[in-house]
């Protein structure tokens, strides 16, 4: 397999859980915790998919997504957004920025892994 996934998430415990799950399914995983430098991390890692948290220090997930979509290189990059706020308007906002999937925390492990697989299979 060998798909490379970048986790942009500031909660270390959640990052650890996701890393475990994705490693278990054969993904390589990189993590990044700061919003402001997220774009450079994406450049550097060149991931096949990004798991993006909304509440990030210094720059929130929406802004990062918008910037990603503005770049031709990352326009098509699959992005899975995670939020703990669970508000409908956040989903609408994410979809307006062409998010591939928008999920609310807490998530089911099985669901998130299969969603990532689906997104990568497209």
């Amino acid at each position: 397999m060998g798909h490379h996934v970048l986790l942009i998430e500031d909660e270390p415990n959640i990052t650890e859980a996701l890393r475990f799950l994705l490693n278990r399914d054969g993904f390589t995983v990189a993590t990044h915790a700061d919003g402001a430098t997220a774009l450079e991390a994406i450049d550097r890692e060149a991931p096949d998919l990004i798991v993006l948290d909304v509440m990030l220090p210094n720059k929130n997930g929406f802004d990062i997504l918008r910037d990603l979509r503005a770049e031709t290189a990352t326009q098509q990059l699959p992005v899975l957004m995670l939020t703990a706020k669970g508000q409908e308007k956040d989903r609408a906002l994410a979809e307006s920025f062409k998010v591939d999937k928008f999920m609310t925390k807490p998530f089911s492990n099985q669901e998130i892994v299969s969603t990532i697989n689906d997104l990568l299979a497209r």
């Binding site: 959640i14 703990a84 706020k85 807490p106 089911s108």
Partner: peptide, 13 residues
């Protein structure tokens, strides 16, 4: 939700 996410995820693991 943030602590609950960790709890759920790790307990499922």
């Amino acid at each position: 939700r943030t602590p609950m996410t960790s709890i759920r995820s790790f307990s499922e693991i």
